[in-house]
Amino acid sequence: MTPFDYARAGDVADALRMGAIEGTAFLGGGTNLVDLMRETVARPARLIDVSGLSDRIEETPDGGLRIGAGVRNTALAEHAAVRSRYPVLARAILAGASAQIRNMATVGGNLLQRTRCTYFYDTDGSRCNKRVVGSGCDARGGFNRIHAVLGASDACVATHPSDMCVALAALDAVVQVEGPAGARAIAFDAFHRLPGDRPDLDTILAPGELIVAVELPANPLAAHSTYRKVRDRASYAFALISVAAALSIEEGRIADVRIAFGGVAHKPWRAVKAEAALKGQVPDDALFRAAAAAEFADAQPLRDNGFKPLLAQRTLAAVLGELTTGAAA
């Protein structure tokens, strides 16, 4: 690890002031950043610990929830309103990492966790445009079973590894940010980027900007929602494919629906094409499969991940089957 200074931020103003200095990184639970620093992928000169900033979950006037960036992943999954009104979020969090990691990880850090592409971690032996822009991408022609099939670029085919973020994408969450240039609210789908020719940038955050909260709008669909994750072992593994979905049925037809996929792209993938194919239709398995096919029509599989579009289709069909038979909560 490269040497660094450590300080705790007492409040947001404190964090912003200290965070404005070049070479500074914010520290949440450290479960991703400490690992990346040990591998020298990240080499900040200063860490400003923001894990003690807001850990509150509050009701908003419009009937949604405001989740402080310092809320631990476990605390969010455990919150009564999340379990009853946003089950997809509780389930997505509980499907990720291990209990120990969820106890440490913060909401802010979860949003900004970096890809698990092994070439990104391999500072000694691999070329990686996300680590060193312009150096090349060893994943494109290498082992790319976990990599993206949608929205990738020549420069980078990495996926975003978070489970929680897939649920937040389906729930139209809003990321509340404060920075040197003031405060702004960012729609979840606009928060993470596609790689393009700047895969070093995972999100649209500017240097020194701090995540202060994530807001969930009120959403009557969300109480009828779930998350399903397919992975190489039953627990404690990143997703190959995951699906977050919420839906309502009126008079035998799908009145409204939200779907997001994990494990398919550089960002949590909000499936607007699949949603459009489902709305107003009578739910059945053939429809679910057609909706997934519409979403993955432009998929560009790599050498090792050609199974993903079909696995995504089957997973979506299973999840929507579960939600339309009312079996899930």
Partner: peptide
């Protein structure tokens, strides 16, 4: 009382 991983925890934190 909460289980955590001491390898990913900076002691100062």
């Amino acid at each position: 009382g909460e289980r955590i991983l001491s390898c990913l925890a900076l002691a100062v934190q």
